[in-house]
């Protein structure tokens, strides 16, 4: 299982801030693929992935227990 975190527009489309999904093995790209399929109305093209609170490349492995966050373009300040 992995823990997913949604923010801003993705959170609104998903209708939730967090969810757990079953997970055995894969990369950040695989998680992104899952999200695109699960929430097709959201445009993930500018979204970055963070694993356990660090930005990662899409090739990064995702292990059971990881926290995976979808980070749309930030707009703080």
């Amino acid at each position: 299982m992995i823990h997913l975190h949604y923010f801003a527009g993705i959170k609104e489309v998903a209708g939730k801030a967090e969810e757990d999904i079953d997970w055995v093995d894969g990369t950040a790209a695989d998680v992104l693929k899952w999200a695109k399929k699960s929430y097709p109305s959201f445009d993930f093209s500018s979204v970055q992935i963070a694993i356990n609170e660090e930005y990662v490349l899409e090739t990064e492995p995702v292990k059971p227990g990881d926290h995976v966050a979808f980070i749309p373009p930030v707009s703080g300040g």
Binding site: A8, G9, E12, A50, Y55, P72, P73, V74, S75, G76
Partner: peptide
């Protein structure tokens, strides 16, 4: 902050609202 810190703002107008992303 505007580049890397995961914080988002939503503007709420009289006739709508939108999450802002720095494209």
């Amino acid at each position: 902050i505007k580049r890397v810190v995961p914080i988002w703002k939503k503007e709420i107008w009289e006739d709508g609202e939108e999450w802002i992303g720095d494209q």
